[in-house]
């Protein structure tokens, strides 16, 4: 079976073609313009993950929201739960880009980090 996965790692959006065997194994990967497309398509076939980017409240900074993201992609089905988790977070300035805002969010093993200094 041929399955097309659009690689979303970068804006080139390669249409990566997977050849899937009867036992659901990946036999061949084609049309990815770089190696990242291969690992993306593989994960997408087995268990899709997404990077979550959102904001949390911040006190004493030039704006009222601090942008944050999960350091790595997390299981796709957890996105909404993480959003609920971050809704009540309030941090205080100064924060540096890369600071950990929540360690091991929802037991995913992934940290939520600040994406700018403020």
């Amino acid at each position: 079976m041929i399955k097309t996965v659009i690689c979303t790692v970068c804006p080139l959006s390669c249409e990566v073609e997977l050849t899937i065997s009867a036992t659901n194994e990946i036999e061949k990967i084609m049309h990815n313009r770089c190696p990242r497309g291969k690992s993306y398509a593989t994960t997408e076939h087995i268990a899709p993950r997404r990077t979550l980017t959102t904001t949390v409240h911040i006190e004493g900074a030039i704006h009222s929201m601090l942008p944050v993201r999960t350091y790595e992609p997390i299981p796709k089905e957890l996105l909404h739960q993480v959003m609920q988790e971050t809704a009540n977070i309030n941090v205080t300035s100064p924060i540096k880009m890369g600071d950990i805002i929540v360690r091991d969010i929802l037991g995913t093993g992934v940290n939520l980090i600040a994406t700018r200094s403020m």
């Binding site: 970068c10 942008p67 880009m97 994406t115």
Partner: peptide
């Protein structure tokens, strides 16, 4: 870039997927 908090910036330049604010910083 400061309001583009989503990721997808800088893969070609920094070989890393950054958010807008990270790229700007």
């Amino acid at each position: 870039l400061q309001q583009c908090i989503h990721h997808g910036f800088g893969l070609h330049r920094f070989k890393q997927e950054l958010t807008g604010p990270e790229y700007a910083q």
